[in-house]
Design a protein around this nucleic acid. Structure first.
Lengths: 155, 155
DNA sequence: CTTGTGTGGTTGCATCATAAAACCAAATGG
DNA sequence: CCATTTGGTTTTATGATGCAACCACACAAG
């Protein structure tokens, strides 16, 4: 077997995330879903991807609890794909990817859209990482610690 | 040709990011690099990946300006791979992935490490998105706008 | 100088995933 | 009831991935 090495049992949360949404299409599907896209054909049109792959990805995203199938919405017999809370939780990831591209892309003039504050129409600030007490943190201000041992007595 | 559909000309900044770091290994390589890993063999040991793929990925990351090759550091003849500013700029993406996993993973007890504030040793808060005036923004408080037309006269 | 060993890769297959297109079945639509 | 749309599955070809073997170079020992 060669297989595309699964990160499933990995202890690193980044690897675990990539296991679920680290492929070429999942995040783009989620992006469309955040825009309100729900139907198979709509995903296919917007993303221009092969239908078999879309089918496989949607199934995987449903399996991972990122999308859920809704029986209908306009009375049609066909089902729809809607984001679960876990799916909506990917929003910061998409924002981080977007901002990275905006800041470092070699051809930023090709980027068509900007994310703005709905109330003011002004661009949002870069994502901020803060300490519990509200201090703004730079990467160097952070470190990794082993996870504290789980509470033993709750079983 | 079938090819793995490139997003290179895509106007979506998310697709553009995925084009550069959206494969299975790049973000993990960057993660290791952020920890200070620099040498080929060190990447290979920590990640347990095939050497040919590591070689290809490192080359691609260098081509994209995310890593740079440094001629030496300990006097050895071999070269090292160090993050560029663009590479360091991926930090929020990794944090977002980490936090998503921490919040929504089905088996969070398997996650080995937590990201903490170095000064206090306490977990960092979730990434915050704010408006220019400092208001905290939820996803629904944002929208996409077409990028303003580029300044015509700077050519 | 010859042999051995470690580092840093490249090359050769075998297998997997992806892509395009053809096909198919159930639901509309006229 | 016939044609078209929707929502897929199947087929087939090719690119990507993974493992193992191989290679080049540096360095060290004998």
């Amino acid at each position: 077997m060669v297989k595309r090495t699964s990160f499933e049992g990995d202890a690193c949360p980044i690897a675990r995330s990539l296991e679920e949404i680290g492929d070429w299409w999942s995040l783009l599907i989620i992006r469309e879903a955040l825009f309100g896209v729900r139907r198979f054909g709509e995903f296919q049109n917007k993303l221009g991807m092969a239908k078999n792959i879309l089918s496989a990805r949607l199934r995987a995203l449903v399996d991972h609890g990122i999308l859920a199938t809704a029986p209908a919405s306009d009375g049609s017999v066909y089902q729809e794909y809607v984001l679960t809370p876990k799916g909506h939780g990917t929003f910061p990831i998409l924002v981080a990817l977007r901002q990275w591209s905006e800041e470092f892309d070699d051809h930023p003039e090709e980027i068509a859209t900007i994310l703005v504050d709905r109330a003011k129409g002004r661009p949002v600030k870069k994502l901020e990482m803060r300490a519990e007490d509200g201090r703004l943190l730079a990467p160097a201000d952070t470190m990794l610690k082993p996870r504290p041992a789980p509470r033993r007595r709750s079983a």
